[in-house]
């Protein structure tokens, strides 16, 4: 008799909790990674651009965009006549991917220099140009993202796969460009920009 009563009370509690739980359920955005782009032009008539998009949103929509013959299934087709020799790039990347960590390109000329190095999970590109290196470009590209980008069939790059890989990469700063009068920064973090 005691067991029956306990079971009844338990069943009663479950029945009462069910509708409450159903009404209380709400979507959560915990863990969402955001892609941020900042462009600041400090000249008199300069403009500033701020773009903040959840990587999940980009990853969901990209595969659905169909702009024949350029974008389909999240992949972008780059024809040689567009000035991009994708085959050569892919071959260079395949060689670099297999190589050990280290500095692969260093160009020092006049008041500028270029350094390309592979360090751990990143491909690092640093460019300095102009008097006292006033123009600077700093790129940190996760190798997994480049792998994903070049995983598409010949003549294409897989942008959707690259975005997915980017969301999983534990990196923040991707691109920083500074030329004295303007700056560009592209980075990823877990924070939206508050309205």
């Amino acid at each position: 008799m005691k067991t029956t009563r306990r079971t009844t009370i338990l069943l009663a509690l479950v029945l009462l909790a069910l509708p409450l739980a159903a009404f209380a359920a709400s979507p959560s955005d915990a863990g969402t990674r955001w892609l941020h782009v900042r462009v600041v032009d400090r000249s008199d008539d300069g403009e500033s651009v701020r773009v903040n998009l959840p990587l999940d949103l980009i990853a969901s929509i990209l595969p659905e965009i169909d702009i024949e013959p350029h974008i389909k299934d999240g992949r972008v087709t780059l024809a040689p006549e567009q000035g991009v020799q994708l085959g050569d790039l892919r071959a260079v990347w395949a060689q670099l991917r297999q190589a050990a960590d280290g500095e692969y390109v260093r160009v020092e000329a006049g008041d500028g220099n270029v350094v390309v190095r592979k360090a751990g999970t990143l491909l690092e590109i640093d460019v300095q140009d102009g008097p006292e290196g006033a123009e600077k470009v700093r790129v940190r590209a996760p190798l997994a993202v480049l792998d994903a980008l070049f995983s598409a069939p010949e003549g294409e790059i897989d942008l959707a796969a690259a975005i997915t890989a980017l969301a999983e990469a534990g990196i923040e700063d991707l691109v920083q460009v500074e030329d004295g009068e303007s700056s560009v920064r592209i980075w990823i973090d877990d924070r939206p920009e508050a309205p």
Binding site: W34, D44, D45, S48, R50, V51, L53, P192
Partner: peptide, 11 residues
């Protein structure tokens, strides 16, 4: 979520 998605400002 509440956020600024695109903001472009010029004079």
């Amino acid at each position: 979520p509440d956020a600024v998605y695109v903001a472009v400002e010029a004079p």
